[in-house]
């Protein structure tokens, strides 16, 4: 099953660790957590999306999700890595 996220209900503003902890569903936390440390390569991200969200970078629901995260400044591509941004 593809996890459902009500993108409009995600809070605006910077992401904190406490905020990340409170997010649902678990797949959304996992995605943002995976962008900590050194971040994800495009291949890592693609694999994670296929596993958790049943679709790669080029599928519309995943694109809408990434756009919502990027709009909030939470998760975006920096050079060749996808990174979660806090604070």
């Amino acid at each position: 099953m593809v996890p459902t996220v009500d993108l409009d209900s995600l809070p605006m503003g910077p992401l904190s660790m406490a905020g990340l902890l409170a997010l649902e569903p678990a797949e959304l936390r996992r995605l943002l957590k995976s962008g900590l440390r050194r971040g994800l390569s495009s291949d890592d991200l693609q694999a994670l999306l296929e596993q958790d969200w049943q679709g790669g970078l080029d599928t519309p629901p995943v694109q809408a999700l990434l756009a919502a995260l990027q709009q909030r400044g939470w998760f975006r591509r920096d050079g060749d890595r996808w990174k979660t941004h806090l604070g």
Binding site: M17, A18, L20, L21, L36, R37
Partner: peptide, 10 residues
């Protein structure tokens, strides 16, 4: 707190 959550997450 924020640091312990980060340490846990990484």
């Amino acid at each position: 707190n924020e640091e312990t959550l980060l340490s846990t997450a990484i």
